[in-house]
Each structure stands twice: as C-alpha cells, then as structure tokens.
Computed example of a mutant assay.
Amino acid sequence: MTASSSLATNAANLVAVSVAGHIAHPGFPGLPAEPYRLAADGRPFLLPAYGGIVYNVSVGDRAFGWAADCVHPGISLRQPEDTRNRGLNVYACVGNRAKVMTGPAAGAKGVVTGKSGRFSEQVIVHFPREARKAMAVGDQIVIRSEGIGMELTDHPGVMMKGIAPELLAALPSRTDGKRVEFGVVARIPAHLAGAGLGLTSDGGSLHMQSTDRALLASLGLDQMRLGDIVAIEDTDSRYNHGYLRGACTIGVVCATDGPRAGFGPGIAILMTAPAGEMGTFAEPAANLADLLKLEA
C-alpha cells in the first residue's frame, strides 16, 4: 500500500482563498406547516435536525442511534445570501482548516468535515468540544479553501470533488500505475443511494437509505461512524448522482441517520470515476478523526 502523498497531483497550482460563514441557527418549515415530519412508517416525529452547535455529537461517533434527524456533528455554517452561500458550499473542501473570528471562542481552529442540508445549504466543521462550549449562533468562521480544481494527473478518469490536498495525502491508497484504489470502511450498494440523487455533487450530500435495518446489519453498514470514508458502488457523481454500472464514488459520512425514508446517514462526496478507473480496499481505520488527527 502506498500513501496518497505519492500520487501525482496538480496541488502546486491550486489557488487558496478565504470563504466564510456564520454558525447557522436550526430551523423548521415556516407556517402554516407543522414542525412534525413523517417517519418511513408514517409516524409523525419531532427531533433535532441539522444546524446550530451540536455539543455532544462529533466526528468519530456512531452515525446511527441518535434521537435526531440527520444531525451534523460539530457546527454548521451558512451565508444568509443565496449566491454567497453557494460559494461557501462549493469552495469549502473536506479537510480545509477553519478559524473562529468572532465571539468568546475567537482563535479556535477547526476542520471542514462535510457539506449537507436539504439543498446544500450548510458546511459542517469540527471544533473541539471545549471550543464549542464558548461559541454562539452567529459567530463568524473563516475557512482557507483549497482543493477546487485538483486532479490526479496520472489518473485523469478520477474526478476530485471537494477534497483538500491534506486529506487526499492522508488517505490510504495503492496503485498499479493504471488504476488507483483507496481504503474505505464500507462499500454501499447502489440501490441504497437515497436523498440527493439527481442533485449536484459539488455541494451537499448523498444520503444512504436506512429503512431496511436487517439489510444494513447483514452488510455491517449499521456500524458506520461519522467521519468514515465509504464507497458507493455503481454510482457516477461527476456532475450529479446517478446509477452507472462499473462507476465508483467515494465520500465521507458527515451526518447522522434519521427516521425518514431515504434519509439515512449523509455522505459528502470526495471523488468519483465512471468506468472502473478507481477501486477500493477494506481499511477499517479510514476515519477523519484519525486521518486528520482531530482534537476531540
């Protein structure tokens, strides 16, 4: 096995630029809608959803079992104006470094760990638990964005999607010169791809369906953790997400499970290849908490 740092890239030509967002307030649908949502079996539920500062769920924790609906670990960022928020969501790459600029936690440092929200509204950032205690909704976070436009120069069929050079260098990998393989915790069958299909793959997340718990248990997918590097089989995510036999997409688990049909753990896409140029091998330790040495 070789480290990804040995893979040839155009990282020396990438542009580093600042993007920023404010810690987002959790929200619910506006009136006259009720705050309740429907679980897969038709039961109404009212649970915490994405947004805000989450004090007790972090990268490295379990993705299943929380009394929550697709909660983001750590903090969630957004910009109030749509085009700026789109810029934040696309520019921010998983593995980019972040810094708190305002409030009592100013100076605290974090790492981008995902992108999510119903329509790519938010960027997820990990900060140590102690720093989160000092934060407030509305605090400004600046991200050093670097990774947009990155290529594997020896593997042009593999498209990078919102991954920082630092994370790419930390991923376990191996190559025979023609095909590159990355270590993943789990492989997800294409028929379990859920919410997010058809939407852009340059922001937001693709959810794994989790209604069939017996199937998940048989595949070991119910043991996934937030921050796990996973593969989605036969899925082409170059521009949006869709079934394509032989394709492979790799991403990171960035949001918890939820009760709704089609909304299991959210996965932020890191790379994709349409025709067998990229493969995977089992690596149970491939989690952002370890790969990027995140402070708890």
Rank of each mutant, 00 (worst) to 15 (best):
T175H: 12
D202K: 05
I148A: 14
G198P: 02
F182V: 00
E181P: 02
A195M: 09
K161R: 15
H207V: 05
R174D: 07
L168H: 00
V184G: 00
H155E: 04
M135T: 04
A195R: 11
G183Y: 00
P156A: 06
L192C: 06
F182K: 01
G149F: 09
T211G: 04
H155L: 07
V137P: 02
A195C: 13
G138H: 03
R213N: 09
S218C: 09
V142H: 01
L168D: 05
G204E: 05
D212A: 13
G198F: 06
L215H: 04
K178V: 15
I141Y: 00
I188A: 07
V137S: 10
S201G: 12
H191A: 07
I143N: 02
P172R: 03
I143V: 11
V158P: 00
A193M: 07
S210Y: 02
P156S: 07
G196F: 04
M135Q: 08
L197I: 14
A186E: 03
T153W: 03
T211Q: 09
S173K: 00
V142E: 10
T211Y: 04
A195L: 15
R144Q: 14
A170M: 12
S205R: 03
A169S: 14
G138E: 08
G177H: 14
L216F: 07
P156F: 10
F182Y: 01
H207A: 14
G149E: 11
L206Q: 02
R174F: 04
M160Q: 12
G162V: 11
A195D: 12
V184E: 01
K178H: 15
L215W: 06
G203I: 01
G203H: 02
A217N: 12
S210V: 05
V142D: 06
E146G: 01
S201N: 06
A190K: 08
A195N: 15
L152Q: 00
L199W: 08
L215E: 12
A217R: 13
Q209I: 05
G194D: 13
L216Q: 05
A136M: 11
H191W: 07
K161H: 03
I148E: 12
I148K: 06
I188T: 05
V137K: 07
A164Y: 04
P165D: 10
V142A: 11
A190C: 12
A195E: 14
P172H: 00
H207R: 12
L216P: 10
L215C: 03
G177W: 09
A164V: 11
L152P: 00
